[in-house]
Amino acid sequence: MEVRTIKVFTTVDNINLHTQVVDMSMTYGQQFGPTYLDGADVTKIKPHNSHEGKTFYVLPNDDTLRVEAFEYYHTTDPSFLGRYMSALNHTKKWKYPQVNGLTSIKWADNNCYLATALLTLQQIELKFNPPALQDAYYRARAGEAANFCALILAYCNKTVGELGDVRETMSYLFQHANLDSCKRVLNVVCKTCGQQQTTLKGVEAVMYMGTLSYEQFKKGVQIPCTCGKQATKYLVQQESPFVMMSAPPAQYELKHGTFTCASEYTGNYQCGHYKHITSKETLYCIDGALLTKSSEYKGPITDVFYKENSYTTTIK
């Protein structure tokens, strides 16, 4: 009895394709271990004539594949690729409408935090270190965002349907971005203890939790000093293409032309909904596939993004 075979390709990165001759009487799992086709788990399936010449994702289970996976995804987590594939199996079914010149995501599976993050990423200057993220990001900007969303979920250790947080998501993504040249110098002034300067680099240099107003941050924000008295913390120097200011959701007025974009969060910790506000020729609110415009805006804002380049204080 002759062994019926077909020729397929296996890959971990969709760049390096490895030619395989597979036995049609055995499952993919018996031949390769966990195997995925377009995100779908085909591990328990036997090869079919229609699979001839198709590319299958496999887990990096030998040295060659491990090197290829690390170079593309910059992670050695053995569960990463499987999590990416199972997320992709959902995100490829989502709709990605162009809204006001940006790629958004039609609401499904509690994905409003991903839509808000995706919209924000198209408006701030950011370059990702893992080629996987950078490639998928370019495709997302062009309207094909399924891979990018699935990668975000995998890097953030999230599953489809789980509630997510924009600030946490951005923080994970910033860790995989090139923020080497970003720098922030802060000064804390206390009447009792004097003053202390701190220099922050990388992710810490672009994120701040405690106030939404970048102007206020430049002037000074009140913080408790270690001595128990009130101290003032203010920005001395900022070198970065953008800054992200966050605070627990509270009524906040966004003035046209003073910011790049913002995240609105309605609801409580267990259950809520994100919308995205962007400042173009007027203010726009993007909620999944829905767009509304207004000249002014007041609502429960939790993150505001500002364009920056270089700032030095005039406070002496």
Rank of each mutant, 00 (worst) to 15 (best):
K46D: 12
H48W: 15
N147Q: 14
M209E: 10
G267V: 08
R167W: 02
Y73H: 03
A40R: 13
P60A: 11
N147W: 06
Q216H: 12
N16R: 10
A231G: 03
V185Q: 05
M245T: 01
L118H: 05
G220F: 02
G53Y: 12
P224E: 11
G210A: 02
I152M: 10
I105Q: 02
F305I: 10
T35P: 07
A40W: 14
D303N: 05
T278W: 04
H18V: 07
I45T: 13
E281N: 08
Q20L: 08
V188R: 08
N89T: 12
P248Y: 15
K233W: 07
G194Q: 02
G33M: 04
T120Y: 03
K218W: 03
H51D: 13
V221P: 01
G161V: 02
S104T: 12
A154S: 07
R66Q: 13
A177N: 04
V243A: 01
W94A: 03
K44G: 14
S294R: 12
T10S: 09
D135H: 11
H48I: 14
K293I: 09
F128V: 02
K46T: 13
M85G: 05
N178S: 09
A117H: 03
G29T: 03
G288A: 04
G202S: 04
L119I: 05
K218P: 01
G257F: 01
Y172P: 01
Q31D: 07
I223S: 12
S310V: 14
G288L: 01
A117W: 04
L200K: 10
N61H: 12
H176Q: 11
Q98D: 09
Y208V: 11
T169M: 06
V221N: 01
P224L: 13
K255W: 06
Q195I: 13
G288M: 03
C156T: 09
C271P: 03
L81G: 05
A231S: 05
L114K: 01
D180W: 06
Y72N: 08
F128C: 02
V58R: 07
T10G: 06
D165M: 07
N110H: 05
L81V: 14
V185S: 05
A117L: 06
Y208E: 07
F148T: 05
A262V: 01
C112F: 00
L163W: 08
K44A: 15
Y208Q: 04
P34K: 14
D303Y: 06
Y214G: 01
A146L: 02
S263D: 02
G228Q: 00
K280F: 11
G228E: 03
P60R: 05
F242N: 02
G143M: 05
R139F: 08
Y73W: 03
Y234N: 03
D165P: 03
Y284D: 09
V188L: 09
G164I: 03
E162K: 06
A145N: 03
L200F: 12
S25Y: 09
E239I: 13
K201E: 10
K201P: 04
E253H: 10
M245R: 00
V206F: 02
A145M: 04
S263E: 00
H273M: 01
L291K: 10
D165A: 06
L119C: 07
S213Q: 03
Q270C: 11
F56E: 03
E125Q: 08
E239A: 08
C182L: 04
A142I: 11
H256K: 13
F305D: 07
C190N: 00
L126F: 08
E168V: 08
Y234H: 07
E204A: 11
E239N: 09
Y297G: 02
Y265W: 04
V206C: 09
P300Y: 12
Q175G: 08
A250Y: 09
N178T: 05
Y137K: 03
K280Y: 08
P131K: 08
D287E: 03
L290Q: 15
Y252I: 13
P130W: 02
E52H: 14
Q175V: 04
Q197F: 09
L163K: 15
V21A: 12
N61Y: 14
Y113R: 08
V304D: 00
T27E: 15
D38H: 10
C271R: 15
R83S: 07
C182W: 06
K255R: 12
T199S: 08
L186Q: 12
L121G: 04
T278N: 07
V243R: 01
A115R: 02
V22Q: 06
Q251C: 13
C261N: 02
Y208A: 11
E253F: 07
D13P: 06
Q123R: 05
T103Q: 05
R141D: 04
P131G: 06
A87D: 02
L17R: 11
T199F: 06
K275A: 13
P300T: 15
F70I: 08
Q175T: 08
N89R: 15
H90V: 12
T27Q: 12
A40S: 13
L121W: 06
A154G: 03
Y36A: 03
K218F: 03
V185D: 05
A108W: 03
H51T: 05
G164A: 02
F32P: 06
T260V: 15
D303W: 00
N110M: 01
I124S: 03
S279F: 01
N49E: 12
F305S: 00
T292K: 09
N16K: 10
Y234R: 11
C285I: 13
T199I: 13
A142F: 12
F305W: 08
P249I: 02
Y96V: 04
E144Y: 10
L114M: 08
G194L: 02
Y214D: 02
L88E: 06
D77H: 06
L88R: 03
T232H: 05
H48V: 13
E168C: 07
P224M: 15
N129E: 10
K275W: 00
G53F: 11
I45R: 13
F259K: 01
G267L: 07
Y84P: 01
P47E: 04
A115P: 05
E264L: 06
I45Y: 12
Y73G: 04
Y269S: 15
A231H: 01
M207L: 07
C182Q: 01
G194D: 03
E2V: 10
A177S: 09
T11I: 10
S295K: 15
C112A: 04
G228N: 03
D109Y: 03
P130C: 08
T313V: 11
N147F: 07
L283D: 00
K158M: 03
E144L: 07
Q123H: 06
M244Q: 00
G53W: 11
V12E: 07
I15G: 09
F305H: 00
Y28C: 10
Q122E: 04
M244W: 03
S294N: 10
P60E: 07
S79G: 13
T35A: 09
M24N: 15
G33R: 05
D287I: 05
S213Y: 02
E162A: 09
Y172G: 10
S171L: 11
P130S: 06
N61P: 06
K293P: 11
N129A: 10
V3C: 11
T103S: 04
R141C: 13
T302Y: 02
E2A: 12
L114A: 06
I223K: 02
Q20N: 09
P300C: 15
C149K: 01
G143R: 03
V21M: 15
D62N: 15
I45E: 14
N157F: 06
L121V: 14
S263P: 01
Q237M: 12
Q237R: 13
P248W: 12
N129T: 09
E308H: 05
C271H: 11
I124R: 03
E308M: 12
L291Y: 15
S263W: 00
Y306M: 00
L17C: 07
V22R: 04
K44S: 11
Q230V: 13
K201G: 09
L153A: 02
V304H: 00
Q31L: 13
L179G: 04
Y138Q: 15
G202M: 01
V67N: 15
G143V: 02
P241Q: 10
K255L: 12
T192V: 10
S25D: 15
N178F: 03
Q31R: 11
T199P: 04
A136Y: 09
L163R: 15
A145T: 04
L102W: 07
D41F: 06
F242L: 01
Q216T: 08
Q175Y: 08
L17F: 11
N110T: 02
D303T: 03
T314W: 13
R139G: 09
G288R: 03
N111V: 02
V160F: 02
S310I: 12
T10N: 09
V160E: 04
L173Y: 03
L153N: 05
Y96Q: 02
D303V: 04
P47H: 01
T35F: 08
C285W: 00
K93C: 12
K307G: 07
H276N: 06
G220M: 00
K127T: 13
C149T: 09
P78Y: 09
G39S: 14
G299P: 02
Y274G: 00
G272Y: 00
D165E: 15
L37R: 14
L173I: 13
V8Q: 04
A115F: 05
T266M: 12
V22T: 09
Q98H: 08
Y306V: 00
W94R: 03
Y137V: 06
G143E: 02
V221M: 09
